[in-house]
């Protein structure tokens, strides 16, 4: 019985840790969207890090879940409307521009000739 509950505890902790890592990653990227200059970004990133560090030692699982849910709600509320996207990525300015032609299509260099010449 205790083995099962320990496994459940470990699994739930692992899921929570992953949620926190991904939330921190998204929030950090969003910080860079809001503060486009480095000297602004570093301060904002430190502030963000401190907000994560503040609840580092919380042990109660349900409280951790509530904290994560609150943080995700805050992140969603303050998400940048026009984030930076790497040009080739979906949503980027070069996405699907000048794509590589599909296999089997080739250029035939016989300009000006009719089909039955």
């Amino acid at each position: 019985m205790s083995g099962v509950s320990t496994a459940a505890y470990v699994a739930r902790r692992a899921a929570q840790k992953e949620r926190v890592r991904i939330l921190y990653r998204r929030a950090l990227k969003d910080t860079l969207n809001w503060a486009v200059h480095r000297h602004l970004f570093y301060q904002d990133a430190d502030a963000l890090r401190q907000r994560f560090e503040a609840n580092k030692d919380v042990e109660d699982l349900d409280r951790i879940d509530r904290l994560i849910a609150n943080a995700e709600a805050t992140y969603n509320k303050w998400r940048h409307p026009d984030p930076y996207v790497v040009p080739w990525a979906p949503g980027g300015s070069k996405f699907h521009r000048n794509p590589i032609p599909p296999a089997g299509i080739e250029i035939v260099y016989d300009y000006g000739r009719e089909d039955n010449d």
């Binding site: 992953e18 890592r21 991904i22 921190y24 990653r25 998204r26 890090r49 996207v85 790497v86």
Partner: peptide, 26 residues
């Protein structure tokens, strides 16, 4: 710690002009 890990991966993304999906970057 794990948050430093996230920061390093983000620095690598900027260095190589990449966009790594969250689950893979993790």
């Amino acid at each position: 710690d794990s948050l430093d890990n996230v920061e390093i991966v983000m620095a690598l993304e900027e260095e190589f002009k990449l966009e790594i999906p969250d689950k893979e970057a993790d």
